[in-house]
Amino acid sequence: MNKDDINRLIKLRKELHQYPDISHDEGATAAKIQAFFEPLEPTKVLDKLGGNGLAFIFDSKQKGPTTMIRCELDGLPITEESNAKHKSTIDGRSHACGHDGHMAIVAGVGMDLAKNPISKGRVVLLYQPAEETGEGAKKVLKDKRFPTIKPDYAFALHNLPGYPKNEIVLKKGPFAAASKGMVIHLKGKTSHAAHPENGNSPALAMAKIIAGLEALPESMNGFCLITVVNAVLGEIAFGTTPGKATIRATLRTYDNDAMERLTKFAAELVTVIAKSHHLGIDISYTEHFASTVNHEAAWEQVNHAAKKLKLKTKHIRNPFRWSEDFGQFSLNTPTMFFGLGSGKTQPQLHNSNFDFPDTIIPSGVGMFNQIIHQLNR
């Protein structure tokens, strides 16, 4: 990429950073991206895909694989703490995960496709909504138009603080954990605080459930983690015993089968404790993330691309504990999700002072362009 192209992408990145949209409310961001791609003249554009998603299709009209490159549209409900001129202009919202940078990288891929058309197959550049809540990929997959662009390969990256800038982080198999939110409602009976024997407080059951959930993974094989993130008991009324409680926890495993087992055992544990205290119980789940699993053939493409570009690589042994909505695509397509180092001193993802480093944009664009060259040129 020449200097003008890079500056154009940096300008786009900073504009996106100033006006972040959160999950399910990415319409303004999608409009900015669509305006950027209009002069690039993709073969076809699918808008409002799975919500506010966009798919830009570059079709060679010749037989060959369909290669999908995916990035994310949404920011986070986090107030930015920064003195940068391009800091978020919207209170309580920021691109504290770097999705603005990911979008700029994929925009750079679009620029290259416009200048250097592919000779076989198709390339689909997907801007996915609602990644942060784990809902967007599933909605994209369920969109009735998605089968028309069903990819043979799907690739995505994420910037990774703590790794040297431009380092490519690779792993075969599971790359990021499966996770889900568990919501437990307990129903007892209130009474006057002077006569707790006339009611049925869920307080003791709540304490047992919190301790039991966090200890449960110790009895299971492989990586399993339950983190209680929120607990609410009764009301602030010193004359009344509590009659209800809510416990929220996040379940994590490295693979989807282990997640099914962990969910089953957690639900059984909670139910036994609630029933032993004669409490009503309701369990529900939210923010489901499938494990992001790298396919060996797709891994080979990314590994080869990094070598061709002479970028330093880091082959990690253990998956990351955080989750990625890209895992939904892993259930149906040979996928490869890789990391792009964003600096050893870079603030961590979801920190209020995170700001994507523009200096790694060319490496991200170069990786995707090289993958496309290998598959579609």
Rank of each mutant, 00 (worst) to 15 (best):
N7P: 06
E15N: 11
Y19T: 12
S23F: 08
K48H: 15
N52C: 11
K61N: 14
Q62K: 14
G64F: 07
G64R: 07
I69W: 04
T79M: 11
E80H: 03
K85H: 07
K85F: 12
I90E: 10
L113T: 07
Y127W: 13
E131G: 14
E131V: 11
E132M: 02
D143V: 13
R145G: 15
Y153N: 09
A154S: 13
Y163C: 09
Y163I: 15
Y163E: 15
K165P: 08
N166V: 08
P174T: 09
S179M: 11
H192F: 04
H192E: 07
A194N: 00
A194L: 01
E197K: 04
P202F: 03
A207P: 01
I210Q: 04
A211L: 14
A215S: 12
F223A: 06
L225I: 00
V232Y: 04
G234A: 07
G234T: 05
G239S: 08
K244W: 10
Y254E: 06
M259K: 05
L262H: 00
K275N: 12
H277V: 02
L279R: 00
G280C: 05
G280P: 03
I281K: 01
D282K: 11
H288Q: 08
S291I: 10
T292L: 12
V293E: 05
N294F: 06
N294G: 11
H295L: 04
E296I: 13
E296N: 14
W299N: 12
V302N: 02
K307N: 14
K307V: 11
K308G: 07
K308P: 09
K310L: 12
K312H: 12
R317Y: 13
W322M: 13
D325H: 10
N332I: 14
T335H: 08
L340E: 11
L340V: 12
T345A: 14
Q346A: 13
S352L: 08
N353W: 02
F354P: 02
I371V: 15
